[in-house]
């Protein structure tokens, strides 16, 4: 494998994890990201289920990309995803029935997760199988990380536990609102605030560092 090839591969994998994180940067797949993250376990299960679905369907779409007619490609993608979601749901019901019950209908909603559809339309339908799998793994991992982040914040603050273990002792008064629906909105809102703040700070720093050499006074593009 040449150095260039290896760089492309790493980029395919890492792009979705951080720089183009589906939830935190592209704001895709918000509905499951907010709905099931009231505990770490639920977020983990949802993240893994979605990762499995996006891996399988990206693989299949990329494999058959030359045979899928252009006019009905979106319906084909949806069908492929729906098939794998059915499989994942039945598997979950078999292995972890209580988690499947907790996630409820949100497992089915993986079908309409725009993150998966957008990866197939933008990437898997044009690129070779190997790169598509890497891309799916990166995006799925990014989604999983975002869910874990939100699930941890909400569970730690909202119930004072992490993965069910008590963190602060019995005197801790949990902020129950964080595990209720408003908490989901507040958590993603504050995460986005933090992201904006970090970006703004980085831009400011690179602007001051560049200043003596580069006398253009324009603000860096946001």
């Amino acid at each position: 494998m040449s150095a260039k090839k290896r760089r492309t591969a790493t980029d395919d994998l890492l792009r979705g994890v951080w720089r183009e994180n589906p939830v935190l940067v592209q704001l895709l797949g918000l509905c499951p990201a907010l709905a099931v993250t009231n505990s770490v376990v639920n977020g983990l299960a949802m993240g893994i289920a979605t990762l499995a679905v996006i891996l399988c369907s990206n693989f299949l779409v990329s494999l058959f990309k030359h045979w899928i007619p252009d006019a009905i490609r979106i319906s084909t993608y949806v069908l492929v995803v729906a098939t794998f979601v059915t499989v994942v749901d039945l598997l979950l019901a078999m292995i972890l029935p209580e988690v499947q019950k907790a996630l409820g209908a949100f497992v089915y909603l993986i079908v309409v997760n725009c993150m998966i559809l957008s990866r197939q339309e933008v990437f898997a339908s044009k690129q070779p199988v190997g790169r598509s799998i890497l891309d799916a793994a990166g995006t799925g991992l990014g989604f999983l990380i975002a869910l874990l982040l939100m699930g941890s914040i909400r569970e730690v603050i909202g119930s004072g536990t992490f993965l069910g273990f008590s963190l602060f002792g019995p005197s801790y008064q949990p902020w129950t609102v964080m595990i209720l629906p408003p908490g989901g909105f507040f958590t993603i809102g504050f995460i986005l605030l933090a992201r904006n703040w970090l970006t703004a700070r980085k831009d400011r720093r690179s602007a001051t560092r560049r200043w003596p050499h580069d006398l253009s006074w324009e603000r860096p593009a946001a």
Partner: peptide
């Protein structure tokens, strides 16, 4: 942008 919209939605 979206950060504020989410907080209002909360």
């Amino acid at each position: 942008g979206s950060a504020l919209v989410f907080l209002i939605a909360g």
